[in-house]
Design a binder for these strands. Sequence first.
DNA 1: TAATAAATTTGTAATCATTACAAAAGTGAA
DNA 2: TTCACTTTTGTAATGATTACAAATTTATTA
Lengths: 130, 130
Amino acid sequence: MSSAEILSGHNIRPSLMRVMIYDFLKENRTHPTVDDIYTALHPAVPTLSKTTVYNTVRLFCKAGLTKMVTIEEQQARFDGCTELHGHFICSECGKVFDFDTDMPKVAGLEDFEIATHDVYCSGVCKNCLN
Amino acid sequence: MSSAEILSGHNIRPSLMRVMIYDFLKENRTHPTVDDIYTALHPAVPTLSKTTVYNTVRLFCKAGLTKMVTIEEQQARFDGCTELHGHFICSECGKVFDFDTDMPKVAGLEDFEIATHDVYCSGVCKNCLN
DNA sequence: TAATAAATTTGTAATCATTACAAAAGTGAA
DNA sequence: TTCACTTTTGTAATGATTACAAATTTATTA
C-alpha cells in the first residue's frame, strides 16, 4: 500500500508535504526529531517550513499513524512504527534503539481506560561500550 | 532514616534547601514539576529560587535519589520513589498515577548496558471517565 | 574567634523547542 | 474563471531549561 493510500485511509489528505514526511518516517527508523526531519527534507524542498513539520507530525500522531517518543529529552522524537516495541536511549551517543518487548503488566488501574503502553530503557549501547 | 541522612548517604550535603525539596518529593507523590515544587515551597522560603530547584532535582537524579518522569509533556516531572513502578498519565486531567508493573521484557539488546527501565501508559483515568 | 576557602544559592539573561496566528499559496468544485 | 476550503508558510510569542557570575552561606584553618 502506498503512503498516499495509507494517509487517505486515516482521513488525511495526501498532500505532497505529508507524503514526503510520512515516507521519511517510514524509511528512517532513527526516531528523528522535528529538526532532523526538517534538515533532511529541506534541501529537496526549499520552501518547507518547520511549522509544517510540527503540524504534520502532530496530525499523524493524532491519527495514530505515528508515535511520539519522549525519552529523557526536551526534544520530541517520532516513530513511523506503531507496533508494540520498546525504546532504548544511549546516554553516551544519544541514539535511540528499538527492542522487542511484550505488553507490560498493569495492575491497580481498574476502571481506567488505557490507550497506550510504552516501555523505555536507558543505558550505554554496544558501540559506546568499546 | 532522616532525609538528611539519606542525602548524606548519597554524598549530597544536606543543606536546608535540599532537605526541604527532598522532603517535599517524599511527601507529595504527585510527580510534581519544578514549578509545582517552587510554588509549594516559596511561601515558606521566600528567598527560594527556581534555579535552585532545577539544580537540586538534577543533583538528586544524578545521584539516583529521585527519578525524572518524562511522559508526553514538555515539562519534566520528578518522583521521590525509585522502586520499579509504572506511570499512567490521564489525557483529560493531566494527572499522573502510579501503578504496579514488573520488569519489562527486553530482547535484542545483547551487549548493551541497561541502567533504567520505565513503563508508561496513557488514557483516561477513573475520575474523568464519569 | 577571625580569616579564608569552598560549596551553595540566587537572579538575570540567554537558549531553544514548541505553539499561536494570520497571511499566502495551493486545490478542487461549480 | 471564481469561490470556498485546505494546506503551507513566516514571524512573533510562549515557556521550560540552562549558563553564568555575583551574593550568600557553610566549613576549615590559623
